[in-house]
């Protein structure tokens, strides 16, 4: 009996916490306006498939400090833009046995507008591919060049450049049809409690967003800002690298960047942010 009374007291405390301001827009007055011109929505209606687990969906931008948020509002201050600039040079660079550049087939990089918004995407062979897979396929099959490493500098440069062409366009990944089975697996992974700390993505980003884990303000774990310039890494961080970091922090054995598992998780996580505009290249802590 005594124990039950204590349990109820704890439940009451938890209830009080849940009804606090933890689950609210962290910066209700903040508006993401880049260069004083480009308005990017950081709040959206949650997609139907979430079944009401989030009242509204929020960009990770809203969970960061004033200083970090400001860095993303000016392209000159945004260190990620240097990667995209280098990407422009790489876009024009002829390579491989075919001596071809990206531009030789695709023309101006603006032709890539909308690509980032639908990644990852099922290819013509029924495989789920991330943007990196499509880029490497071009390199090895069309250019006769070496594939780039998932987290390599050239890959960061070119994915940053391509993502930038979709800035402001809502995330629009396809989750039905051929994508459905991948999406289901990604969903299952999202709710799996990995590692010795037994933590799932949902533990932090669905059940506790808005709360503090030490100095970190937990976001909803949206991926619309990726690739993101992470101040802590002083570099562009691809989404799979962030996934790896999260699983590492569960004292778990990670999957490899670019693995089938991470591409499925990428699809599911992207779909939680359906409707939020692509920010890539965002700036985070």
């Amino acid at each position: 009996m005594k124990t039950m009374t204590k349990l109820w007291a704890t439940v009451a405390i938890c209830g009080a916490m849940l009804s606090s301001t933890a689950f609210a827009d962290p910066h209700p007055d903040a508006e993401l306006i880049i260069e004083g011109e480009l308005h990017i929505a950081t709040r959206a209606e949650p997609p139907e498939h979430l079944g009401g687990v989030l009242p509204e969906i929020y960009s990770g931008w809203l969970f960061r400090t004033d200083e970090t948020r400001e860095l993303q509002m000016d392209d000159f201050d945004n260190p990620g833009m240097l990667f995209a600039e280098r990407g422009e040079d790489r876009w024009e660079l002829a390579e491989g046995t075919a001596n071809q550049s990206c531009a030789d087939c695709h023309g101006d990089v603006e032709s890539m507008a909308g690509v980032r918004a639908v990644m990852p995407k099922v290819n013509e062979n029924g495989e789920l591919w991330s943007m990196q897979n499509y880029i490497n396929n071009c390199r090895t099959e069309r250019m006769g060049a070496d594939a780039w490493g998932w987290n390599s500098e050239p890959m960061k440069d070119v994915t940053s450049l391509i993502s930038l062409q979709s800035r402001g366009m809502p995330v629009a990944v396809k989750i039905d049809g051929e994508a459905a089975e991948f999406w289901e697996k990604g969903r299952e992974m999202y709710y799996t409690r990995f590692g010795q700390l037994e933590l799932s993505c949902a533990n932090c980003h669905e059940d506790n967003w808005g709360r503090m884990i030490r100095a970190d303000h937990l976001s909803q774990g949206m991926s619309n800002g990726f690739p993101t310039y992470r101040l802590k890494n002083a570099s562009i961080v691809p989404l799979h690298q962030r996934f790896r970091g999260c699983i590492r922090d569960t004292r778990g054995e990670s999957f490899a960047e670019g693995s089938q598992e991470f591409r499925e998780l990428e699809l599911y996580v992207s779909s939680r942010g359906l409707g939020l505009p692509v920010e890539g290249i965002s700036v985070r802590q």
Partner: peptide
């Protein structure tokens, strides 16, 4: 008792 337990915070297998 764990799913993919790791070697501390290395992201490698235990």
């Amino acid at each position: 008792d764990y799913i993919r337990p790791g070697e501390a915070y290395t992201a490698r297998a235990y």
